[in-house]
Design a protein around this nucleic acid. Structure first.
Length: 273
DNA sequence: ATGCCGTGGAAACCACGA
């Protein structure tokens, strides 16, 4: 199973790019962020014609998240991050696909920092971490995928020294990411490519893509049993060079099919009592 | 390194993004 996450930066403005990439990459599941479209303007028909079912949580102008599934509709299990009824941003949606719980998130940017937007980011992160705790404690296969708006380490930034005061790289945010991962999640891209420079975002200006002045901010965190099933992971960075493209590139992981239940073996171990 | 580009929405500029 191939699962992707892609901050499209406007699902309607980006529709030709999205459809071309779906056709070429053929992911089984896709988490989208920054739809920038209200509920009724999600391009369901075009996505269905491309062979995907979808659940989405839209919002006028900003934010918006969706989960696509090839050949069927995802089974939605939650929309909106729990923990604050006052928070109306569409930044979280969750669905079940073939026994895997997929959480699609768009964590707040948080700039300028310090300030109210940064405070909101930290509060959102805290709520998300609480929810992630409840997911991992269920011992089910879970994937947290999306735009986390965090570079976890210096390796994830083209020029770390110029980002230390930024809301995407400040110590509070990196520490929050650490606390989350420490619950038992595996950062899939980093796990399979330790020490490698991997970017998922390049600014539109200053020729960032050509200079490879990038950031790794789109992540896959997988639960322990899925970590064992990881076979590969990567970034479709070429998509970033297309016309009218997003400033993010699609990121993906592949999971081995669930191993068939082992044949029952005679238990040779002694009972512990 | 400062939103230098890009999107969406409202009103020919503004909010927002990272």
């Amino acid at each position: 199973m191939k699962i992707a996450t892609y901050n499209v930066n406007g699902v309607n403005g980006r529709l030709p790019v999205l459809l071309r990439w779906l056709h070429e990459a053929e992911p089984d599941v896709v988490c989208l962020q920054e739809l920038k479209a209200p509920e009724e303007k999600f391009p369901l028909l075009a996505i269905q014609e491309a062979g995907y079912g979808a659940v989405w949580h839209g919002q006028k102008s900003w934010n918006g998240v969706a989960i696509l599934r090839r050949g069927a509709d995802p089974v939605e299990t939650m929309r909106g991050l729990p923990g604050d009824p006052e928070d109306l941003h569409s930044r979280y949606i969750e669905a079940a696909v073939e026994g895997v719980l997929i959480a699609c998130l768009y964590l707040p940017n948080g700039n300028p920092a310090p300030g109210p937007k940064f405070d909101y980011k930290l509060r959102w992160f805290d709520r998300f971490t609480k929810h992630a705790r409840s997911l991992i404690s269920k011992k089910l296969p879970v994937i947290l995928a999306g735009d986390f708006n965090v570079m976890p380490t210096e390796l994830d930034v083209y020029k770390p020294e110029s980002w230390v005061d930024d809301a995407l790289f400040r110590p509070e945010v990196r520490e929050a990411f650490d606390r989350l991962v420490t619950q038992g999640w595996t950062d899939a891209l980093r796990h399979l490519h330790p020490g490698e420079r991997i970017y998922t975002f390049w600014d539109y200006f200053r020729n960032a893509y050509a200079r490879n002045a990038g950031l790794r901010i789109d992540h896959f965190l997988v639960s322990p049993e899925l970590a064992e099933r990881l076979t590969s992971a990567g970034v479709d960075r070429d998509v970033r060079s297309w016309e009218k493209t997003s400033d993010h590139a699609p990121v993906w992981i592949e999971l081995a099919n669930q191993p068939k239940p082992a044949k029952k073996k005679r238990c040779t171990a002694r009972p512990s009592w």
